[in-house]
Design a protein around this nucleic acid. Structure first.
Lengths: 182, 182
DNA sequence: CGTCGGTGTTACCGGTCAGTAACTATCTGG
DNA sequence: CCAGATAGTTACTGACCGGTAACACCGACG
C-alpha cells in the first residue's frame, strides 16, 4: 500500500495500472482486490492515509513549539519548503484532483476536506502568531505553497518554487505582520 | 481543434479519447490523423495555440495602458482573476504538466517555456511599476495565480482562490510596493 | 470528362487495463 | 492432524483506446 502511494504519486493515478502496483509491491492483483473493492477505492484509501499523515504532522508541529505560534509558523514554512525541494512530484491531493476531472469522484471529497482543514490550521497559526490579517495571510501561504508545488512540475526545481521560503517569510513579515511594528 | 482544446481542458488529456474529440467536432478519426501525427502531437499543438493566445493577451495588456505599468499590473490581476472565477478547470498548461508524468514528453518543453515567459513578463511589469523587489513580487504573483487555479479544483470556487484579487493587490501594495511610501 | 486532393465511413489490429473465476499453496489455531 | 482463513497463480472477459487500411465520396480545376 505504501508502494501504491509512491507509484500513484510518481506516475499519476491514471498513469499506473493495478498490475504494476502489485508487482512492485511483490504481490499480485487478486490479493489487492481482496482488500480493496476497486481501484477508486484504493485511491481513496491512499489519500486518506496521506491525510492522516498530514494531520499528525500538524499536531507534531504544534507540539514541537508549545505556546510559540511564531516558531510554529516558521516551522511550517520549513516543512513546506522540504515538500517542494524533494524529488516529489507536487502534492498528492492536488495532483489527483487534477487527474480526476470528474467532480463526483469519491476522492474529491477527501481532498476538499484536507485542503479546508489545512487552510483552517494555517489561519489558526496566523491568528495565534498575532498577525494583523490572519485570514489573508493564511490564504496567501496556502496558495503560495500550492502554486510552488505545481510550478515545480512545469518549470522544474530551479523555477520560482525555489524561492518559496523567502516568499512565505515575506508574507508573514509584511502582509499580516504589521503587529511586529506596532 | 478548438473542440480538442476544450475537451482536453475539461476532461484532461488522458481522460478523453481521440474518437470523442473528433465526434464532438463533427468529424472523424481519420481526418484528424491526416493533420496530426499522433495524439501527443495534437496535445502539443493545442498547447502551442494556447501559448500564442497568452502572448497576444500580454501584448494587448501592455498596449491597453501604454506607459502606465501600474495600470498594466492591475489589469493583469483583473485578467487573472477572471481566469479563476470562470467555469474553467485551472490552467491548461499546469494541468497537462500534472497529467503527463513523463518528463520527456514534448509538451513539457512548451509548458516550461510559457511559464518562464510569463514569469519574465511579470517581473518586467513589476520592475517598470517601480516595485522595490520586482523579482520577488513577480514570483509571488505567479505562484499565487498558479495556486489559485489549482485550489479551485480541490476546494471549488468558494475556497481561497476566491480571494485571489485581494491577495495580489496586497502583494503589490506591501511586498514590493515600498516605493509607494518612499 | 478525368483526375486529384481532401473528406467520410467502416472495419480492424494490437495493446492495455480493470476486474473476476477457479484452483492451489501456505500458515494458522485448535 | 485437521479446518479455515489468507495469499499466490494463471487465465480469462470485456471494454477502451491509439492508430491504420481500404474504399467510397465529392468538389475543383485542367
Amino acid at each position: 500500500m505504501t508502494t501504491a502511494r509512491e507509484m500513484f504519486h510518481q506516475h499519476g493515478v491514471r498513469g499506473v495500472g493495478i498490475e504494476a502496483i502489485t508487482e512492485a509491491a511483490g504481490t499480485n492483483k487478486m490479493t489487492l482486490y481482496r482488500h480493496f473493492a476497486s481501484k477508486d477505492d484504493l485511491i481513496v484509501e491512499c489519500l486518506q492515509r496521506a491525510a492522516k499523515e498530514s494531520y499528525l504532522k500538524w499536531d507534531e508541529l504544534e507540539r514541537q513549539y508549545p505556546g510559540d505560534p511564531k516558531a510554529q509558523l516558521h516551522s511550517w514554512i520549513e516543512n513546506a519548503a522540504e515538500c517542494i525541494s524533494g524529488d516529489w512530484r507536487g502534492c498528492e491531493m492536488a495532483n489527483t484532483a487534477v487527474e480526476l476531472a470528474d467532480d463526483d469522484h469519491p476522492a474529491k471529497r477527501v481532498i476538499e476536506e484536507v485542503k479546508k482543514n489545512h487552510r483552517n490550521f494555517l489561519a489558526k497559526l496566523c491568528a495565534r502568531a498575532g498577525l494583523d490579517q490572519p485570514e489573508l495571510a493564511a490564504d496567501m501561504l496556502g496558495l503560495l505553497l500550492e502554486g510552488a508545488r505545481i510550478s515545480r512540475q512545469s518549470e522544474g526545481q530551479e523555477g520560482p518554487s525555489a524561492r518559496f521560503k523567502r516568499m512565505a517569510e515575506e508574507v508573514i513579515a509584511t502582509v499580516g505582520g504589521l503587529a511586529d511594528k506596532a
